[in-house]
Design a protein around this nucleic acid. Structure first.
Length: 642
RNA sequence: GCCGGUGUAGCUCAGCUGGUAGAGCAACUGAUUUGUAAUCAGUAGGUCGCGGGUUCAAAUCCCGCCGCCGGCCCCA
């Protein structure tokens, strides 16, 4: 065996080096001291490693520096270690658990009696950043599992011992430790060469979190933070957080007067006239789109006897989340407000005998639903107790699934594109808590997979995330400031037709089982409205804007004319207001801009004599004075439903 | 439901170590009639989230409940 190995770099070039050379030495000697200094970690044959690791065979090597996007995740993980060591230094007796990097930063969960106060967090941040200045090396060592258990037992780290034992139970023989200064944790790595590479650590918040996410377990204290290579990047991040707070739909909901909440009905919104316009515009839009796509709309009861929920399986699996209604005759909670539409649609399907010629049968519904969500989880419009989905259930044959999925994706794509949302696709498979046997799940998952693949859609697999009655395709959208929301969904259900004994008569004159597709695009009107408010920062396109144009007169003598223009535009179906309050013209224009109304129409003597208006777009762009009829044509174009 | 924070006028907020509440904007009234982001003056508006307790005295201190906010869990 030769003592010389070949290293292949990302550009395809190859270098020779002695077997056993560390990556750091190889980079310094064979590539250059500049890269060696900047390097944070390496990817060797696809596996991420510390720079201190040795090269033992011919490899493909890639070096990451602060310029690589992957490096942020690395230093955030480094930062989690540093924060944990800082916390244990400042608060002796605190036990450590886990501390992963997240999309925006990292967190670390600690076990201690007292929660951290804001002052504690400041101290932690100061100490963590002091540790960065000390520039301590991250040193990797390996020990046996028995030694590891002993090590953490000696330290009194009960949670660590539990994790080590779990890892051992999975068959691991050794454990990798990382030490910086005198603080040690086990971790797969890799880490940066030293704490000085991290740049800056910012502690953001703290909260409670259950050990392993289970509410029966002890409550841990979670510290959230983030890390960047320099102060400027951190400042940009904090600015971005501030910006997104300005778009928060709860804040804009107040400023633009869209909705309210009252303590007497937590989690259920009151919609103002403007908010209602938003809501019904979306509702009518979805009606039109589904109708054009071969759906029929139906309405079913809001409240049902528990018999329905027993048939559907909700009584067993979902009762906790249902609002039960006391039946005064029986004295029992025999009724429940519906938390989902599906069971009532299945009943509806069963009212008639269906032929294969009826299929696919697409029922659309926008009925109100109630779910008794945990009090602590309610928030704004994104998590409510009363809401409506743009729901539909498609009853079809197994052979029609692929076509129906394709058709649905096309509709969904139209909707998301119209409002400027991009999306990613996820296929969720059987969860642990489920109804139905494995052969049913095999067919259901296979059916969706086949449909996605026939569409050539890229998708991510999420094992275990399916609904209890079937697998699903989820569509996660990204809004204008890069946040992700799970909205659209298509769920395949072989189980409900069995439970509800749904049938159709086939060409062979025999009875067959249809399959059911549950699907939604908005998800719920409430959540979708919230997302659009934030996505557009309240500045809605004209077709969606609660008020499309506001008239402002220069002086009172134009008021009659302004009323006439308002009425004629209203008669054509546009949402137009005339601001008649006793304020100055400038104040009214300012107000219209703050309310983000798409068009402000200024009217003075010139406009009166020329039968025109002078429109100004939201944002300040002045359009030239134009005839009212020309403005109408402009509005007609921009106010049309997409 | 759990952990932590928080709750003063329609909105945004002040009110220090306890001495029975204040500003700006909005509203209302009057004056002003103005050409593209705040005209001026005046008036009115509050059981300080709710219920107990401590105290001569509570927005302020203590307890309970409710809501909201940040998380956990769950999820459209």
């Amino acid at each position: 065996m030769s003592d010389i190995i070949t290293v292949t770099l990302p550009d395809g070039s190859q270098k020779q080096t002695a077997r056993g050379t560390t990556i750091a030495d190889f980079v310094r000697e064979s590539i250059g001291p500049g890269l060696a200094k900047a390097a944070l970690f390496a990817r060797v044959n696809g596996q991420d490693m510390d720079l201190a690791r040795k090269l033992d065979e011919d490899v493909k090597l890639q070096i990451f520096t602060p310029k690589s996007p992957e490096s942020l995740e690395l230093i955030r993980h480094d930062a989690a270690h540093v924060v944990a060591s800082a916390v244990q230094k400042l608060f002796p007796g605190t036990q450590v658990t886990i501390g992963p990097a997240t999309e925006e930063g990292f967190y670390y969960d600690f076990f201690r009696e007292k929660p951290f106060t804001p002052e504690d967090l400041e101290k932690i941040e100061a100490e963590a950043n002091a540790e960065l200045k000390r520039d301590m090396a991250f040193v990797r060592t390996e020990i046996s599992m028995d030694e590891a258990v002993r090590l953490f037992e000696e330290k009194g780290e009960k949670f660590k011992v539990e994790i080590v034992k779990d890892i051992a139970a999975k068959g691991a023989k050794t454990l990798t430790l990382y030490t910086h200064g005198d603080w040690v944790d086990f971790c797969l790595g890799p880490h940066a060469p030293s704490t000085g590479k991290i740049g800056i650590i910012k502690i953001l918040s703290s909260s409670g979190a259950y050990w392993r996410g289970d509410h029966r377990n002890p409550m841990l204290q979670r510290v959230y933070g983030t890390a960047f290579f320099d102060k400027k990047q951190l400042a940009e991040y904090l600015t971005r957080i501030e910006e997104s707070k300005k778009r928060d739909h709860r804040k804009l909901g107040k400023e633009l007067d869209l909705f309210h909440f009252h303590p007497y009905s937590p989690g259920s919104a009151f919609w103002t006239p403007k908010g209602t316009t938003l809501y019904t515009t979306l509702s009518n839009w979805m009606r039109q789109l589904t109708q054009n796509d071969g759906y029929v709309e139906i309405k079913t009861p809001l409240m049902f006897n528990k018999g329905l929920w027993e048939t559907s399986g909700h009584w067993g699996k979902y009762k906790e989340n249902m609002f039960l209604v006391l039946d005064s005759e029986s004295g029992e909670h025999d009724f429940s407000l519906k938390p989902m539409n599906c069971p009532s649609h299945h009943l509806f399907y069963g009212f008639k005998k269906h032929s294969y010629r009826d299929l696919p049968l697409r029922y659309h519904t926008q009925d109100v639903l109630h779910r008794n969500e945990a009090a602590g989880s309610l928030g704004g419009l994104t998590r409510v107790r009363q809401f409506a989905q743009d729901d539909a259930h498609i009853y079809c044959t197994e052979a029609q699934i692929t076509d129906e999925v394709r058709r649905f994706v096309k509709l969904l794509d139209h909707v998301y594109k119209a409002v400027g949302l991009t999306y990613a696709v996820k296929l969720s498979t059987r969860p642990e808590q489920r109804l139905g046997d494995d052969s049913l799940w095999d067919r259901a998952e296979g059916g969706l997979k086949a449909a996605l693949e026939s569409l050539g859609l890229e998708y991510e697999l999420a094992p275990g995330d399916g609904a209890f009655y079937g697998p699903k395709i989820d569509f996660a959208v990204s809004d204008s400031i890069g946040r992700r929301w799970q909205l659209g969904t298509m769920q395949l259900d072989y189980l409900a037709p069995e439970r509800f004994d749904l049938t159709y008569v086939g060409e062979d004159n025999a009875e067959h089982r249809p399959v059911v597709l549950h699907r939604a695009i908005f998800g719920s009107f409430e959540r979708f409205t919230a997302i659009l408010i934030e996505h557009f920062a309240g500045a809605f396109p004209a077709w969606l804007a609660p008020i499309q144009a506001v008239l402002v007169t220069v002086a009172d003598r134009q008021n009659d004319y302004a009323r006439k223009v308002r009425d004629s535009l209203r008669a054509k179906g546009y949402r137009v207001e005339f601001d008649e309050r006793g304020m100055s013209m400038n104040a009214k224009i300012r107000e219209a801009q703050l309310q983000k109304v798409p068009f402000t129409l200024v009217v003075g003597d010139n406009e009166v004599s020329g039968e025109g208006v002078s429109p100004r777009r939201y944002g300040g762009e002045d359009l030239k004075t134009m005839k009212v009829t020309d403005f109408e044509a402009l509005l007609a174009k921009e106010a049309a439903l997409p």
